[in-house]
Design a protein around this nucleic acid. Sequence first.
DNA 1: GGGGTCATGTAATAGGTTACATGATTCT
DNA 2: AGAATCATGTAACCTATTACATGACCCC
Lengths: 198, 198
Amino acid sequence: MAKRRKVANPLALAVLAFLLMEPMHPYELGRRLQETDKDRSFKYNRGSLYMVVKQLRKAGFIIEQETVRDTQRPERTVYALTDEGRQELYDWLRELVAQPQEEYPHFGVALSLLSVLSPIEAVELLGRRLTALTAEADEIRATVRSATEAGVAWVFLVEEEYRLAVLDAECRFVTGLVESLKQPDYVRAWQEIFGRGT
Amino acid sequence: MAKRRKVANPLALAVLAFLLMEPMHPYELGRRLQETDKDRSFKYNRGSLYMVVKQLRKAGFIIEQETVRDTQRPERTVYALTDEGRQELYDWLRELVAQPQEEYPHFGVALSLLSVLSPIEAVELLGRRLTALTAEADEIRATVRSATEAGVAWVFLVEEEYRLAVLDAECRFVTGLVESLKQPDYVRAWQEIFGRGT
DNA sequence: GGGGTCATGTAATAGGTTACATGATTCT
DNA sequence: AGAATCATGTAACCTATTACATGACCCC
């Protein structure tokens, strides 16, 4: 159901969105992307940025508008959004909002192999995870609080709220899981099956 | 903090885990990986499998054990886990359990750009997402139920439970978000800022 | 004015996906 | 026996990340 995009990297979506406001050259894009989204909702990397820009140009979503030369800095090419680009931005964004994508969180595969670890060890490791998750959540809460106090509108913080919601859910899940792993039934069953492997 | 793995693709972790039980040739691995994990916790793809196997061999985590030729099928190479491979498996698994990784869910970037869409449209799209999420959750619940009835131990279903926990949290979040977007304050503010764009 | 660091981009390499190839099995 | 499908791999093609390069600015 999910459409095949000519340019699939989520970074490209952000680029399109920023060019919606005004034309810009790649470096400026990079600067703004980083400062707006301190590497939270997408992965920033200069190499990828230039790649994505090239792809977007080839796909006709952006065009070189002019090449400025401040006579000191290297030549910089300013890109502008095309009509197709705006179209793509809206279409893509709508799809991402309306249709959940298949995600493959790292913790998922770890869980699917959890039985490999001894219950005792698993409990200990999960305890550490819980600590880390809690710290992360606290940090986000602090960020949100200070941004709100600085007058940032809530709509620009929804992504943080989302992460918080997911983090909280994961905390509860892990807590429950730890309890299950401590049940003597499970410990015994594990012993019988895996004997004393590593 | 997260260690740099010689082979980073999560599929490789699954391969190591399967080779822990017994040596196997790649095709057999592929078959089992697919049937065990109907593409839920990691992304399966034959091309990637062969690539990963090659990488693991180069890294010394697995070795060619023998080359069988049933005299009709093409030659198949059977791989076995080395001691370093077992070590890597445990080390990697422990890390994944204990330390949350940076994830970049697609919905995250969509949310960070949500203000681009009109509140009315956003509400409609989120409604569709909610439907999809609910269906997905129901499906997982059904899977879990039938597996449980078939006698599968809960530990082999934790990953599904995890997905359920996250899905539920997302549902609640989206529901709340829809309410916020409907607030007249927000609708008015949006109108003022974005006037009548697309 | 020379050493460090910022600004800006390109090129080399590694990673991953799709497309292709080829013999075997099965079905009618 | 020919068509369709399964089993099994390889190779070609993109994508993404790291490493490198080069000129400008800033500080003593």
